[in-house]
Design a protein around this nucleic acid. Sequence first.
DNA 1: GTCAATTTTTAGTATACACTCAATTTTGTT
DNA 2: AACAAAATTGAGTGTATACTAAAAATTGAC
Lengths: 187, 187
Amino acid sequence: MARYKVGLETQGKILEATRRLLSEFGFEAITVKGICAAAGIQAGSFYNLFPTKDEAVLTVVRDAISTFDPDPDGEGNDTVEALVDAYTGFVIKDPELGRVYAHLAVTAALTQDHLAGRIQRHHEQRVERFTNAYVREHPDVPRSLAGDRMEILLGALNGLSIRWSINPTFDISTYASLMVDELATTP
Amino acid sequence: MARYKVGLETQGKILEATRRLLSEFGFEAITVKGICAAAGIQAGSFYNLFPTKDEAVLTVVRDAISTFDPDPDGEGNDTVEALVDAYTGFVIKDPELGRVYAHLAVTAALTQDHLAGRIQRHHEQRVERFTNAYVREHPDVPRSLAGDRMEILLGALNGLSIRWSINPTFDISTYASLMVDELATTP
DNA sequence: GTCAATTTTTAGTATACACTCAATTTTGTT
DNA sequence: AACAAAATTGAGTGTATACTAAAAATTGAC
């Protein structure tokens, strides 16, 4: 929506401020007022560039996640292990943002609002991607079963990442690998 | 705080209304106004019996969970499997309430408010109890390791229950059992 | 340099919410 | 029946929030 250079700069300021506030204080604490203050702009300017607060938050979270994408060009050569590493890497790199994601994933299951739909779609795409990788590695496993298993894996990863964000000594990577092994060998 | 019969009755009405609203609309949708309307009372009456909204919600969730307690008298004879069954039973019996619990468990990791502290304490007690059962069944495993494993199990259970509440065809019981087996056999 | 499109500011609106309080009514003990 | 404790009412407070709109300033294509 920004077409002039200043508009793009302001957009950048807003995203950076949102990212900083999310990383520091989490999802519940974020307000448009706070974002504007941190970005050094006024509310009207925010709404000239973003339709809603959620849009700014989602943009930040999406960008942060894609930073860890093992196959950003969609060449179809990522592995389940690499995808799991990407997930844990994201959570470990920026714990508070990981919490924000987990929080969004949970509330997506709870509420019916617009944000929930967006997050749910993201989750489904993620399952799809994990499933593709799994089927590639285990061609003998029927796709529907593979999909179920990846649902478990992702559900458990979400739970573990929440646990990890409470107690960072919790060895999420190792346990995530353990789960992957288990799902690879179960008949 | 209720000392007269009518007060106890009103307390019951409030809890029932809260339970009904939570089961139907979830945590995010609940308001004091809504509870009062459903209970057929006024706000002042609510606050005569409950100090905060959260207190009513917590009471309902706590009661619902304790219904499934395999060892309500604390005799120390419950097993990990029975505890897992209790968890999944609770979630399956009342999905929306299960979601509410998962939601509270997640936000407990996110926020610092009073409610968060209460839920976190509940989680810790739960881990303690799972750990006790696990150590009873696997006396050779050191307690700290057992505790870690139960943290994983509970974290994953939370994640799975969220997943299940999105898609009830998801076989949470079976997968929960699988996880228990895995945690029993890992060196 | 002009001028329309874009951006920014300023000053709001609308609303939803948890919670309070003084006055009134009801309860149960004596 | 008296009366204090408890319960209830109903109107209200305070506050925080996302979001808006009109006017002013800035940008950049021509």
